[in-house]
Write a protein that binds this DNA or RNA. Structure first.
Lengths: 337, 337
DNA sequence: CCTCGAATTGTGATCCCTCACATAACTCAC
DNA sequence: GTGAGTTATGTGAGGGATCACAATTCGAGG
């Protein structure tokens, strides 16, 4: 609700004050070239005098374009690519709006959210949820013609998407442990409903088997710090021996390091630990964490750029852009003694 | 740009199909009571059939209300209250939009951002920046009649605001160190342009002096992990002795713990460390960090609730809601030996 | 059977802009 | 100075909803 006295001025008010038609004012605002210099100056001065700014709602209604990109994601707290997305969007002339789903929302929740969002006349959608409920065709119809890009979706799906090759990342991590001589490798996996967690887990198992090894004990956490702690305690209590521990993300790895420390297990002397993500803090863990880095800046940049070019060219062919993680070796891994 | 074939249906399309006037359809949508049951059903069925959803831009234009709250903040990455704000806003029937300023934006940047935002017909503004450039009167005029609440602003300002009593939080931390017997207390402060950093620093100095102590060495960081690390190295290299270290936020404290560990300084045996914020990871640092907790859920809840009531009642008196932090004692502090 | 009032429905104007087009004013050549 | 060709400006018609009001229908009481 506006202060009643702060009645906004409109195109017509400006036009009247400047002694021109509203259309001329519109031209000045939209930088149309065909306006005489004197007229433009007169209009600009009137705009300043009335403190006029165009009403976006009306503009959106008239043009059908909002210059708004909507990001739909499931947990804002841990969204490191967010600032880069906002920055990229702005750079391309768009505003990025963010809306959040509860973690592991049901299909109906996603449907409802999309219903709500597409009513707002947004120009494009970035969808960043780890639970791939819908096929490309379903998604297309849910988005009702609004172009969309899936961010961090499953590898290999036929949908406009930008993803990391999780498999490659896991292979780097496991290969590193194998190279160091480890043969008994335990795992703390992510939440089983999380697409990345599934893929990371499968890759670990597949790869160990491919090397003729029996996968070590494995427990599923939920990607949060406390679950990393609790899972590690369970692993230790199970009595199954392991000399290396692969943790599906850095956050849980922090919990794992804590648990190992409390139990007197030295890292990396007794157990090597590898994380995943390379969150900013990982380099300062005790010991600094060896982990798999995903360049979220690039993820953000690619996602927004792809979406914007789809907006400009709706018939753009569907593609999946795949990015590759890299291994960052720090102090939490060492050769098997 | 929409797919041309996915032309959205409008009120009129629905009206035609249902054999009623557009106004009746509008009534059905807005739950107006005076609609005959049979008519309502006919309309609802037409809505379903056409997959109709009202155009929000048009609605905003007609009503002047968007049911959108805008959050203006300076660094999304570290915004723990964000999810709570989004949740609270939704609970009250609003959508929360987020936009970001570069860290320590200049006054003109804030002005430009507000110019842009207020053009979008938002119902209210949450302003969460640590640099208080404008007076209440200036702010009011910048917001052009849109109600606003300052979040985490300076203590004692006459503006609608919800803040933590930083002073109280610092006093808790320092008192804790004093109680443990520490007399040589070093400090890593936050960025000097950050309002919270200033207040925390001043409070530390004031309080130590009040106890007849000389404030120990102090270095200003920037609230990021690496600066906590670098500052600690500098403190150690300076040769000035200290038995306790107050760090202005947990993130820097993580860097500090790392630096102390590398230099062979034991925490808490040789040096006690206190942080500020109680970020989720702090309990899992090595050692677990003693820190000052601010309940960000409450901050978020109060901010949104206050803003929404201002929207409902524009003549609501200006108030500052002050929240109090609490001390969380963990393993990084111990009695002076 | 008519009248009155409530319940239901419909009509016009409006919100503030942009589009496509029509008109007016200006330049310049012949 | 008349015509064409720019360049500047103005007009009408939407865009898709809401609001205030007018018009209709309905049921009940006299």
């Amino acid at each position: 609700m506006q202060d009643p006295q702060v009645k906004r001025s409109t195109l017509r008010d400006v036009a009247e004050l400047a002694g021109v038609s509203y259309q001329t004012v519109s031209r000045v605002i939209n930088q149309h070239p065909n306006v005489a210099r004197r007229t433009r100056e007169r209009v600009l001065s009137a705009i300043r005098q009335l403190d006029y700014r165009p009403n976006q709602a009306a503009k959106v209604l008239a043009t059908g374009r909002s210059y708004i990109l909507q990001l739909l994601m499931y947990d804002i707290r841990y969204s490191d690519p967010l600032p880069a997305m906002i920055y990229q969007a702005r750079k391309q002339g768009y505003t990025l709006l963010i809306s959040e789903l509860s973690p592991f929302a049901a299909p109906e929740d996603i449907r409802a959210a999309l219903d709500d969002l597409t009513a707002r006349m947004i120009d494009g959608l970035l969808i960043y949820t780890p639970t791939p409920f819908f096929s490309y065709t379903e998604m297309r119809s849910l988005c009702r013609g609004v172009p969309f890009v899936l961010v961090g979706a499953a590898l290999g799906i036929k949908s406009p998407s930008v993803v990391f090759d999780q498999r490659h990342g896991c292979e780097l991590a496991i290969q590193h442990l194998l190279d160091l001589g480890h043969r008994q490798i335990a795992e703390i996996a992510g939440h089983p409903r999380h697409i990345d967690a599934q893929l990371r887990h499968e890759t670990v198992v597949t790869m160990l088997k491919a090397h003729g090894l029996t996968p070590g004990p494995s427990i599923a956490g939920d990607f949060e710090v406390p679950s990393g702690y609790a899972s590690t305690i369970k692993l230790l209590d199970s009595g199954e021996p392991f000399t290396a521990l692969f943790v599906a993300n850095d956050r849980m790895a922090l919990g794992a390091l804590r648990a190992l420390h409390e139990r007197g297990v030295r890292v990396p002397e007794d157990v090597s630990v590898v994380g995943f993500d390379d969150m900013g803090e990982a380099a300062y863990f005790n010991p600094p964490l060896t982990t798999v880095r995903q360049d979220l800046q690039v993820l953000a940049q690619q996602s927004v750029e792809y979406l914007v070019s789809m907006i400009g060219n709706p018939s753009m062919p569907v593609q999946q852009r795949v990015l590759y993680p890299e291994l960052i070796v720090r102090g939490s891994t060492a050769p098997l003694k």
